[in-house]
């Protein structure tokens, strides 16, 4: 099962859609003002991503190459509509606070990118697993960004979690410190850009450290020939 292990590694870290591919930056930057919003959008994206990857993988042999993109987009749009209606029905507060970015999942490059690059070339289980891992990787970035911005901006965590999980979740809200004047920059899009840049830098630093820790691979034994008389 090293194939699945590789898919997980690619989605969660090495080829993380948020940090490395830099896909879906628009929702990534726009809705991560609080952890709750970030998790909400992340989970919605995971659901759509798994669904679209499975469906695209199922129909991959029947779709002519020339019109594959429109077909993929229609599949994704149908799934997004379903997810949007579900959130509208069961988490109305979240629906309101995510606003336009919920239907805009259709245009999220992560989803069309995975459909095109992975799902249309692989079997259904692999595609589903890839959707899950890419989605989780994206959600993780959203969550870290959302948590950072919420802590810096409001000094809280899980503010408004009841919108996502129901009224019991109000007790989840953690107030780290009392702020009289909230740090608006962290809540505004420029703060998201700066935080995102720092996150990417942090990932690169970790990668470098890992690289340095790894013992240098033995130089492959070079083929030495005493004399070359003829080429080819």
């Amino acid at each position: 099962m090293s194939n699945f292990k590789d898919i997980a590694w690619q989605g969660l870290w090495k080829n993380n859609p948020g940090l490395v591919q830099l896909l879906g930056l628009c929702p990534l930057l726009a809705v991560t003002a609080t952890l709750t919003n970030a998790l909400g959008l992340g989970l919605a994206t995971v659901a759509v991503l798994i669904g679209s990857n499975v469906l695209v993988s199922l129909v991959r042999d029947f779709v002519p190459k020339e019109i594959r993109i429109p077909v993929f987009v229609m599949i994704i749009a149908a799934l997004v509509t379903a997810v949007q209606l579900l959130i509208n029905a069961y988490a109305y507060g979240l629906y309101l606070s995510l606003g336009i970015f919920l239907p805009l999942i259709v245009t999220n490059c992560v989803i069309i990118g995975r459909a095109e690059a992975f799902a249309s070339r692989n079997s259904v289980p692999a595609a589903a697993f890839d959707g899950l891992m890419m989605g989780l990787g994206f959600t993780a970035v959203l969550a870290v960004l959302g948590a950072t911005r919420e802590i810096l901006g409001q000094g809280t965590l899980f503010d408004g979690a009841d919108q996502l999980l129901g009224s019991w979740a109000q007790s989840l809200k953690i107030e780290l410190w009392q702020v009289d004047n909230s740090f608006l920059l962290a809540m505004l899009p420029p703060g998201a850009f700066i935080a995102m840049g720092l996150l990417i830098a942090a990932k690169n630093v970790i990668d470098k450290r890992l690289e340095a820790k790894k013992p240098a691979p033995e130089p492959a034994a070079a083929i030495t020939r005493a004399r070359i008389t003829k080429v080819g």
């Binding site: 004047n181 740090f183 608006l184 920059l185 420029p190």
Partner: peptide, 10 residues
Amino acid sequence: VLLLVSFPVL
């Protein structure tokens, strides 16, 4: 500008 945008009242 960062401070002005972040803490307009102060």
